[in-house]
Design a protein around this nucleic acid. Sequence first.
DNA 1: AACTAGGGAGTTTTT
DNA 2: CTCCCTAGTT
Length: 722
Amino acid sequence: MGSSQSWTLNPTQWEAVRHGQGPLLVLAGAGSGKTRVLTHRVAYLVEEQGVYPSRILAITFTNKAAAEMKERLQQLIPGETVSWVMTFHAAANRILRQEIEALGYARQYTIYDDSDQERVLRAVLKHFDLDEKVLSPRAVSSRISDAKNRLLGPRQLGQQAVTLHEQRIADIYTEYQKRLQEANALDFDDLLMLTVKLFQEHPPLLTKYQDKFQYILVDEYQDTNQAQYVLVNLLAARHRNLCVVGDPDQSIYGWRGADLRNILDFQQDYPDAVTVTLEQNYRSTKVILQAANQVVSFNQNRLPKELRTEKPEGEKILLQTAADEKEEARFVAETFESWRRAESRGYNQFAVFYRTHGQTRVLEETFLHYGIPYRIYGGQSFYKRKEIKDILSYLRLLVNPTDNVSLERVINVPRRGIGDTTWARLVQRAEEKNLPYYFALQELAEGPECGAKIRRSLQEFVQLIEDFRRQGEADGITTLTWNILERSGYWSELGKEEEARRENLQEFLSLTREYDERRSGWEEEAENGEETAGLAHFLGRVALITDLDKYQEGEQAVSLMTMHSSKGLEFPVVAVLGMEENLFPHGQAREDQQELEEERRLCYVVLTRAQERLLLTRAERRMLYGSVRYNEPSRFLREIPPELIAGSISRQPATAAPAAPARKPLGASHLFHVGDRVVHRKWGKGVIVQVRGEGDDYQVAVAFPDQGIKQLLMKYAPLEPA
DNA sequence: AACTAGGGAGTTTTT
DNA sequence: CTCCCTAGTT
């Protein structure tokens, strides 16, 4: 972002930065220095207008954006701390931690992520005796999320229900919400919905925060949903110093509740609003920008806007049609290699975007084969890994004994002989006596219902948890965590082949260590009476952070990611794969005008990620779900002016790709040698003892200390240098 | 209580 | 095709 921009602001940017009191709408095209404007505006308010940093609220969508903003502020106004620079959810969480008792929840509430949510839903479906095949937890969860985003509680959804099916969803929602409350747990959507509820039901609390936040700034306003919209506008109602920044053309999250009208209607919401439009782009070449402008102009429902740049014309966009997805991947690999050499670029200057995760596989195999280092973004998050969720569940259970999901997760992990039968008995008792599961467990451990052996196990488990609780976090969260891992037997239960899990846990311990060390820092940022620097605070942070394995700038690797996760990033060289009907625009989106326009905006987003070079590819045939599909070229290709394109929409002999190098692929044999230490995802550490074969047949023999020698086909083996 | 085979679903994702 | 959950088996 903006790194290519010079240090000063242009006149339009200045106008937005220096805007005084009252509402302000900044329509910021891609690469127009939006983050710059936001940070400079905050700095300006503090430095020039003498606004107290604690009275500014700056909201972003992702932790990454918030971190970036904080960092830049640090540079602009060193010595000042603007502590309310955070995501929507983090801000809501911070308010609720303080005030939630007004809604009848306890302050140590647990935040449930989507997998916790799914567990609850599964139980609810079972409770209603509904077959998961008829009504999937996924489908229900998205309906509930939808309702919450629109600020509809279970009762309101029930009132709206017309069909039997809708009524059933409402019933499930009711039971789901009841269970969350009993567990003193909030899901992500609750954070927003309950904050709004808090303010609506308790006007004095609303007034308190309205008074506090003299200036409010919101990034990516085009992505706000109804709940976020109401929240922001409630908070801004008193001072009316609301500055929203966004780009309607980059709205790509309609499917998860984002409402484009929020930004489009800003002028109507605030008739006295000043609008500033940033159309000067500092990122891409003229060719790239023209293509993007042109494509998005095919949308009917949009405000006119055209990006300009003073950058050079640049190279034409390279378009290549491959026979299938393998050839497509090879073409990208070879083109990248040739550009990397010819233009002495580092691997970190390259990125590959695709519409669906399913497309990563072939890319991985191909890059591995060519010996091109790569990194996939947005896959399985660190915090969703089993071992991390397990240890987190132990910690959550300590803070909140009513957290039934966490209890279920850890009660028999590691195995302690408490199986399905015992669990069912426990659940039954809990429901009969309307108790949290943990308390029912304590009763079972003392009562006569279970056999002596089981009772013994239950007692030991309770004893264990109570010991941990007694120990608490007085010696730091790291000590507590390590204690749990060791004393529960979790650590020693991890076999040799689960080395990766151990490493993840080590990584988790380094996070707790970091937290323990920065404890005093959190205490400093805390405002009057805020409880920070405790286990509950730590768990709250962890629940809202998923960015651990996100983009790291310096790393010498090609970045692979879905089109959606590319938003907000920029790369000198970008390849966009699968430019085909049914894939992009996605098959499900082609019928519906609204969805199609969102796909087109997605296209606008990906094209504008590229700074210098753009490579678009498609495959004539593609393997999807085990069968071969033949897709037409994407309509978006035809929407790009032909004079900006080199190459052809139809398949051409190799000459159509002037940049394709006439050289042999590197071959993965350059990756490993006999004697190299490697790590295998399943088998752990090993040493290469033999290398043979070429290309797809390239094989290595690896000696693993405990499993002996394995023959691995490099094409598939999850093998990495150690 | 733990393992195995079989069935069904499989855009996009942050928090 | 492949992953993941479930049901059935031992």
